[in-house]
Amino acid sequence: MSTVSITPGRRPRVGRADALAAGTTLLFVSLVVIIPLAAVATKSFSDGFGPFWESAFTRQARSALIFTLWSSLAVTAIGAAFGTLTAWVLVRDHFPGKAIVNVLIDLPFALPTIVAGLTLLALYGDAIAYTKWAVLLALLFVTLPFVVRSVQPVLLEIDTEMEEAAASLGASRATTFRRIILPNLAPAIISGSALAFARAVGEFGSVVLVSGNVPFDTQVSSVYAFKQLESDNVRGAAAVAVVLMVISLAILIGLRVWERRHTISERTA
């Protein structure tokens, strides 16, 4: 039996202090988050749906969006594979300097994105600057920790007995990985990847310098929106922003729904 009980009625009753705390929080969050985001949506539709659609999907905006989605998808896939591998090595392997590598994984979370972009320019310089490769590399850098950090704790929890049992039943290492370990890691890989994808789609700081912002080539949606804003096309920027917001919201809500369904099916199993 678990010590964390979720029997109904285990929570203290709703008092005035609760309501006050919740009210204040909601008010603050509204002023900072909800109202501004609503303003973006309102602005983008200020001239009706037709103009919204036109500015959200001009040829240039469409090209930027397609490149954004493809590059995010590619980066998410690479991050999922190599992130899982990295987590595996960090949990199961032992080598000198492991602790340092483990710390370094968090560097992209700590390093300002603009610095990250500059860093990649410094290294790969003219060879890749202002190409699609530069954008990919920048996105890879900023999304690196997501999958590693979501898989690592799960891998630590999986006890080796399960793998030993599979081995004793005649499963090869590859089979054990595919049929025993991977299904256990899948939820963590998926939720880490979803967050990484959302981050990649909206990423700005690290790509603004390295992409060179070449329309129909290296321009991503966030930079496109930024440029529209700079040239005073606020409604155009808002339209693209709405598209990006819809993508983020879909990922966030989808992930939550999926997580809930997943934990419920696990509980009833």
Binding site: L37, L195, E203, L229, V234, S248
Partner: peptide, 26 residues
């Protein structure tokens, strides 16, 4: 409270450019 949970997570997934634009608009 569930709505709050989602809303408070929102900035995590929203592009910084969108954040900036949103604040300018309000």
């Amino acid at each position: 409270r569930r709505l709050l949970e989602v809303v408070i997570d929102l900035p995590f997934a929203i592009s910084p450019v969108v954040v900036g634009l949103a604040l300018v608009l309000v």
